[in-house]
Write a protein that binds this DNA or RNA. Structure first.
Length: 433
RNA sequence: GCCCCGGUGGUGUAGCGGUUAUCAUACGGGCCUGUCGAGCCCGUGACUCGGGUUCAAAUCCCGACCGGGGCGCCA
């Protein structure tokens, strides 16, 4: 037990009534009425009230009312039940220790009644995170990751970590960050794709990685980051992509069940209902029909743009569905390692409320076909030698998916900006903090 | 990469050729024994930078810098 605290704010109850307790935290507000003052103290659980009387403890009173907001203090005093206080208990202080005095004025208000812009919030993220509703996002995020891990372990997946410093363009498609690797150039990985596939040639059979994606795209939108996190899954000896989708949808269900009762959700005004399985599977062809019925023009074969994805999302929303798959994309719309099926592919994207949150497929496991597809995609097999080698000495049929963690958090919690979902976002302009 | 938009006290805003530059909140001081968005009184505090137009620029024009957003791409 910390010498600075015997109780958190929510731990005060009948047992503490009349007893001496020690509480600690940040001074959220001071309401000085002259002879009596109320100090609102915040800790990780919430807030509590310290009530001090000038007549009874003039020294303690003076010390408390002269504090600046957001200073850190530890207070020893008697806990007293009092109906007049919002959470039923107040502390009558005997001693106050000032652990850290906050400068004034604050760069942004924690509980002020003025709006603060995202940019100012991110510049002062440590202050922003003192707000309960902001912390709630990360408590839910923590639970999401914890549940995903719990599910995958139970399903026999092992957690792996693959390199983030790589030698060359791994999949094409996106721009990579170039870095110096001693005397050579290297890149930051856009995804663990090639490595998790190589692991399918080892006998691990089922792996997952919770890691980073780095993408050097100069996009500047509410749903893109240049550094994002993802849950990547790869599994061997599958019959087709349906086996992968089953794991993914069951993982989503498990996550929803684990978070649906969290009190942090109500703090955000969100309700989550676990979806029923199986999730709807909409073939690309059907999606095209839906989009055309909505009055948008789209050519068969092209990937779905934002408007098109939104159109499908709207139709599903009308049907009361938040999670759904779009499957069997045209081969040309998917990366080279995707298993062909005629001019289509054994691929799928998972959407939540109209936002793409995951993408996966059965992969090609035949070396020669893979090399052919690389070439057709305009890539040079020589750049992929180490990867291709894993396909020459026994590679089982396999598939997997990558799910963006920020995307999932954003769509589940109905947040308007993906930067809300990551502690210290990296975007086109932001490199600090 | 393409295209829109914006920069006014610590924070969030109003003003859009001539104002003592609006309001809120924060901050500093004062009054107040039950506050909980405490209240009341007083005070400090701002036009991103550089050119230009004009009798006069926060306001109009050009450029720079810094942001926000959309598209493409994707998680």
């Amino acid at each position: 037990m910390s010498p600075y605290r015997t109780h958190y704010s929510k731990e005060l109850n009948q047992d503490s009534d009349g007893k001496e307790v020690v509480v600690a935290g940040w001074v959220e507000d001071i309401r000085n009425l002259g002879s009596i003052a109320f100090i609102i103290l915040r800790d990780r659980q919430g807030t509590l009230q310290i009530t001090t009387f000038k007549k009874e403890h003039p020294e303690v009173f003076k010390k408390l009312v002269s504090l600046s907001r957001e200073s850190v203090i530890s207070v020893r005093g008697i806990c007293r039940a009092n109906e007049k206080v919002r959470n039923g208990y107040e502390i009558i202080p005997k001693d106050v220790e000032i652990l850290s005095r906050a400068e004034t004025p604050l760069p942004m208000g924690i509980v002020d009644k003025v709006n603060v812009e995202m940019d100012t919030r991110l510049d002062n993220r440590f202050l922003d995170l003192r707000r309960e509703e902001v912390r709630a996002i990360f408590l839910i995020r923590d639970k999401i990751i914890d549940s995903a891990r719990e599910f995958l372990r139970k399903e026999g997946f092992i957690e792996v970590h693959t390199p983030k410093i790589i030698s060359s363009a791994s999949e094409g498609g996106t721009n990579l960050f170039r870095i110096k690797y001693f005397e050579r150039d290297a890149f930051l990985a856009q995804s663990p794709q090639l490595y998790k596939q190589m692991l399918m040639a080892t006998g691990f059979d089922r792996v997952y990685e919770i890691g980073w994606y780095f993408r050097a795209e100069e996009h500047n939108t509410r749903r893109h980051l240049n550094e994002s996190t993802a849950i990547d899954v790869e599994m061997a000896f599958i019959e087709n992509e349906e086996d992968v989708m089953k794991i993914l949808e069951r993982m989503i269900l498990h996550i929803c069940r684990k978070i649906e009762g969290m009190e942090e959700l109500s703090r955000l005004g969100i309700e989550i209902t676990a979806p029923s399985l199986p999730l709807p599977r909409i073939r690309y062809d059907e999606a095209i029909d839906m989009i055309r019925k909505k009055g948008l023009e789209i050519e068969w074969g092209s990937d779905l743009g934002s408007d098109e994805e939104r159109a499908v999302g709207d139709v599903m929303k009308e049907r009361g569905v938040s999670f759904y798959f779009i499957t069997k994309y045209p081969l040309d719309a998917k990366p080279f390692y995707t298993m062909p099926e005629g001019n289509l592919s054994r691929s799928f994207d998972l959407f939540c409320n109209g936002i793409e949150i995951a993408s996966g497929s059965q992969r090609i496991h035949d070396h020669d076909l893979l090399e052919k597809r690389l070439r057709e995609d305009g890539l040079d097999p020589d750049d992929f030698k180490a990867y291709l080698k894993a396909f020459r000495y026994g590679m089982p049929p396999h598939g997997g998916f990558g799910m963006g963690i920020e995307r999932l958090v954003m769509s589940l919690l109905n947040l308007k900006n993906i930067r809300e979902c990551i502690l210290f976002p990296r975007d086109r302009n932001r490199l600090t903090p």
